[in-house]
Simulated assay, not measured.
Amino acid sequence: MKKNHSALFRCCAFVLIGLLNISAVSSLHAQKRVSDKDVEALMKNLKEDSKSFRENLDSALKKSAIRRTSQEKDVKGLVASFEKQTDSMFSEFRKTKRSDVAVETTIGSAQEIERLIYSLQLDAKTLSEWEKIRAELDRVSSAFGINVPYSRM
C-alpha cells in the first residue's frame, strides 16, 4: 500500500509542478502585454516624432545629391504620407482601440522610407531620428502582434 501512496504522491507532484509552470508562463505573457493607455502614448509619440522627422528630412534633402529633382519630391511625398498615416493610426486607435490595418499600412510606408534613407546617405541627425521612429513603430506593431521586417539597402 505504501508503494501506491508514493506513486500517487509523485504523480500529484508532477501535475502540480506542471500547473505551476503553465501559470508562471501565463503571468509572464500577461505582463508583456501593452495596455491601451501605453499603446496610445506610443502612437502619440510616433505621430509627433514623424512630424519632426519630416521637417528635418526636408532640410537634409536640400543638401543631398537628389536636391531639386523629382526623386526629392517623391521622398518628401512619401514621408508626408507616412506622417499622415501615423496621425490616422493614432486617431483610429483613440476612437476604436483597434488599429491593425492602419499599423500595417504605416509599416509598409516605413519599409519604403527605410530603404531610401540609407541609400541617400543623409546626415547623422536624420538617421538618428529615423532610428527612433523605427523603434517606436516596432513597439506599436509588437503591441498588435505584428512582426516588422526591415532591410537596409
Rank of each mutant, 00 (worst) to 15 (best):
M1S: 14
M1C: 06
K2I: 10
K2S: 03
K3C: 01
K3Q: 06
N4D: 11
S6V: 15
A7D: 10
A7R: 06
R10I: 14
C11M: 15
C12P: 00
A13T: 11
A13L: 15
F14S: 14
V15E: 01
L16T: 13
I17Y: 05
I17T: 09
G18F: 14
L20H: 02
L20I: 10
L20F: 13
N21C: 14
N21Y: 09
N21P: 01
V25Q: 10
S26C: 04
L28C: 09
A30E: 15
A30S: 15
Q31A: 08
Q31N: 03
K32V: 00
K32T: 02
K32N: 03
K32Q: 02
K32C: 01
V34S: 09
V34M: 06
D36C: 00
D36K: 00
K37A: 10
K37H: 03
D38I: 03
E40V: 03
E40K: 03
A41C: 00
A41T: 03
A41L: 06
M43Q: 15
M43H: 11
K44N: 14
N45K: 09
L46Y: 09
L46T: 12
L46G: 06
E48S: 10
E48I: 07
D49M: 11
S52K: 07
R54T: 09
E55R: 08
N56T: 10
N56D: 11
D58H: 07
S59I: 09
A60K: 03
L61P: 13
L61H: 14
L61N: 14
A65Y: 09
A65P: 00
I66T: 02
I66P: 01
R67D: 05
R68A: 04
T69A: 06
T69S: 15
S70E: 13
Q71N: 02
Q71R: 06
Q71S: 05
K73M: 02
D74C: 00
D74P: 00
V75I: 15
K76M: 09
G77P: 01
G77V: 04
G77M: 08
S81D: 07
F82E: 10
K84F: 07
Q85R: 08
T86S: 13
D87E: 11
S88M: 03
M89N: 09
F90P: 02
F90K: 05
S91G: 04
E92Q: 12
E92C: 03
F93G: 08
F93H: 06
R94G: 10
R94I: 14
K95L: 11
R98G: 06
S99R: 01
S99H: 05
D100F: 07
V101F: 07
A102F: 14
A102R: 15
A102C: 07
A102I: 04
V103L: 10
E104R: 15
E104T: 10
T106C: 15
I107D: 04
G108R: 10
G108A: 12
A110S: 12
Q111W: 04
E112P: 00
I113L: 12
E114H: 14
E114Y: 02
R115D: 01
L116E: 03
Y118C: 06
L120A: 11
Q121H: 13
Q121K: 13
L122G: 04
D123C: 05
T126Q: 10
S128T: 12
E129W: 08
E129S: 15
E129H: 13
E131G: 12
R134L: 09
A135D: 14
A135N: 13
E136Q: 15
D138Y: 12
V140E: 07
V140N: 05
F144C: 06
G145S: 12
G145N: 13
Y150C: 02
S151Y: 07
M153T: 01
M153S: 04
